[in-house]
């Protein structure tokens, strides 16, 4: 996990936003999309997220992730839910071996859109936030330091272990073991090398625990402080208020729609 100077986080409006404000955004946008009766709100939010990606200067990786996940899952769900959902009554497309139903497709669209909103907002938050600042912000509002430790340590330890494995994989390729040889021979070549990595990681943990203890980790009754300073600015208050208002509005409108007072869902056509 890189530090502020050497990481890949470009300075931008989003990067300067307080991590908790961004979390508020993720929750608000995600929940609003979830409760909305159909996929229209989510679609609008996705467009907003793309604009935010531009503001955060991460448009290219963002688009890659959104499309890379969005397209396959849309196809799969349109197929599974669209053709075979039990709630299908109206047909919009006849494929021969199956019929694409309206309700199923709408359901699939809603799911895809919700997933993409969560994925997009999560991804944007992740890519524009230095994790150390996020955990510092969480610690400030009282989240136990052990949880902060688990998040940060996983983000550091796991890539380090994966790098060790990657080195082993490369040495296997160099020995030409990728081509030729069935499953058994590959397993026999690969597994004995994983064993030492796993076992040495486990025994490493004992010394790492020693280090944590001698640095006073987990002292009770002491308010943790952070080296990093996370400043809450007026713009963060504004954004959080906007997010909250948005969510509340969405909830209110949905309740009204459920009660039948207003119609939110658009009527799509289709044969019965």
């Amino acid at each position: 996990m890189p530090g502020p100077a050497s990481n890949g986080i470009p300075d931008s409006l989003l990067a300067r936003m307080h991590p908790m404000a961004k979390i508020a955004g993720v929750c608000s946008l995600g929940l609003a999309t979830l409760v909305w009766p159909d996929f229209t709100l989510g679609l609008g939010i996705i467009v907003v997220l793309f604009i935010a990606a531009v503001l955060g200067r991460v448009l290219r990786p963002f688009s890659g992730v959104m499309l890379g996940f969005g397209i396959p899952v849309t196809l799969m769900l349109l197929f599974i839910q669209g053709c075979y959902s039990p709630r299908n009554t109206k047909v919009i497309l006849d494929l021969g071996f199956a019929q694409l139903g309206l309700e199923g497709s709408l359901y699939a669209a809603k799911i895809v859109v919700t997933l993409l909103v969560f994925l997009g907002s999560f991804y944007l938050t992740n890519k524009t936030t230095y994790m150390g600042r996020l955990v510092a912000a969480l610690t400030q509002i009282g989240v136990p330091s052990k949880i902060g430790y688990l998040i940060l340590a996983s983000l550091n330890v796991v890539p380090q272990m994966q790098r060790r494995i990657a080195v082993i994989e490369q040495s296997q390729h160099a020995r030409g073991l990728e081509t030729g040889g069935g499953l058994i021979s590959r397993a026999r070549a690969f597994l004995p090398l994983l064993g030492p990595v796993v076992l040495s990681s486990l025994t490493d943990s004992q010394e790492r625990g020693m280090t944590l203890e001698t640095r006073g980790f987990g002292i009770r009754g002491v308010r943790q402080t952070s080296y990093l300073e996370v400043v809450w600015r007026r713009s963060d208050t504004v954004m959080t208020i906007l997010f909250t208002v948005f969510l509340v509005l969405a909830l209110v409108l949905c309740c009204l729609s459920r009660a039948g007072l207003i119609t939110l869902a658009i009527q799509w056509g289709g044969r019965a």
């Binding site: 996990m1 890189p2 530090g3 502020p4 100077a5 990481n7 230095y130 994790m131 150390g132 955990v135 902060g148 430790y149 940060l152 340590a153 550091n156 330890v157 490493d204 010394e207 790492r208 020693m210 280090t211 944590l212 640095r215 980790f217 080296y227 990093l228």
Partner: peptide, 16 residues
């Protein structure tokens, strides 16, 4: 002995 087991693994920079 082992330097890399004496890091907290919570810091992104040496200062932290």
């Amino acid at each position: 002995q082992n330097p890399f087991n004496q890091l907290s693994y919570t810091a992104g920079t040496v200062a932290e």
